[in-house]
């Protein structure tokens, strides 16, 4: 199964245009997923259990998105309203009884709203499980959203995540991503800074152990003027783990005065661990500032 295509291809000999997972078949999904805990200021949010439309620009490939469309067993439409700065936590525990999670979460931050949403994926028992999830964020004007995404799945579990954020004028979306788990952990993260003065900050920390493969494909397209993207990805890999980081900041025509920074730092803790990075800057607008930096070294 070929996943996580980069927006621009380079030589296929470099092995980074996509990831091909060959020792895997898509499991059948049970209709319900019960190990779900919703906590925090639950009453301050509107939470609807409804299927959301799948209309992603990228995402984790046709097959997995089709599975979410047809077989999702957790569906949420979360609405954030008002400047309350309240916190909502969703915690999914994948176990032998709730082995396969296919979740479809839409977060809609209404105009002038703010909030914090924590989404945690755990596998408290050491069972081989499967996760295929979608988080879509619609940030309306002047909204401010802080999303904390935690992947603490075990190293037997296949983990696929698609994230898409659409930001309107003066909106801010900040992500803290803790990406530790999964046998193959494949993340497709896309942000569309369509509004002027919109801002997306994503801070990721990853850890690769044993024979894990982490494939992180972060794509940010900047359309609106005076917009900001800060991408900061740090992590460590050890044992025989592999990490692929593909980061793209794409300044589109009209994104004048926008700024983008992309940093990746990988600490390699074993001489059998492998790190590949592809930090791309694409630019069709003159009046922007784009920077990227990557570094790898031992401790």
């Amino acid at each position: 199964m070929i996943l996580n295509e980069t927006p621009i291809r380079t030589s296929k000999n470099y092995g980074i245009n996509n990831i091909d997972i060959d020792d895997f078949s898509i499991p059948e999904i049970q209709e319900t997923f019960e190990e779900l805990n919703i906590s925090g200021d639950v009453d301050e949010f509107t939470i609807k259990k409804e299927k959301n439309k799948i209309d992603l620009k990228y995402g984790n490939g046709e097959v997995l998105l089709k599975q979410i469309k047809n077989y999702s067993n957790v569906n949420f439409h979360i609405i954030v309203e008002g400047k309350k700065n309240k916190e909502l936590q969703l915690e999914f525990d994948l176990t032998n009884k709730n082995q396969n999670l296919v979740d479809n979460i839409l977060i809609e931050a209404r105009e002038n709203s703010n909030g914090i949403i924590i989404i945690k994926y755990l596998s408290s028992k050491n069972d081989k499980c499967y996760h295929n999830g979608l988080i879509k964020v619609l940030a309306q004007k002047k909204s401010n959203l802080n999303i904390i995404f935690v992947n603490m799945l075990n190293n037997k579990t296949e983990n696929f995540t698609s994230i898409e954020n659409i930001l309107e004028n003066d909106s801010k979306v900040k992500y803290n991503i803790i990406d530790f788990g999964g046998k193959n952990s494949i993340t497709n993260y896309y942000t569309n800074l369509k509004g002027e003065n919109s801002s997306n900050e994503v801070k990721t920390i990853y850890l690769g152990t044993s024979e894990q493969t982490l494939d992180l494909n972060y794509i940010v397209e900047v359309y609106g003027k005076n917009s900001i993207i800060n991408m900061d990805v740090k992590g460590a890999i050890k044992d025989k783990s592999k990490k692929h980081f593909k980061g793209t900041i794409d300044f589109k025509k009209g994104s004048k005065k926008s700024k983008g920074n992309e940093n990746e730092f990988c600490t390699i803790l074993s001489d059998r661990a492998k790190s590949i990075s592809l930090p791309m800057l694409l630019c069709t607008e003159e009046d922007v500032e784009g920077n990227h930096g990557t570094a790898s070294r031992k401790t």
């Binding site: 092995g15 300044f251 390699i268 790190s275 791309m280 570094a295 790898s296």
Partner: peptide, 29 residues
């Protein structure tokens, strides 16, 4: 000018721990 295009597409493939690698890129006017 704003009718041109500039892309940076570097692949960094590091297979050992005992290394010092750094990459910096800038795009601007």
């Amino acid at each position: 000018d704003d009718i041109s295009r500039s892309d940076t597409i570097p692949v960094n493939d590091i297979k050992t721990d005992d290394v010092e690698f750094s990459h910096e890129a800038k795009i601007g006017k």
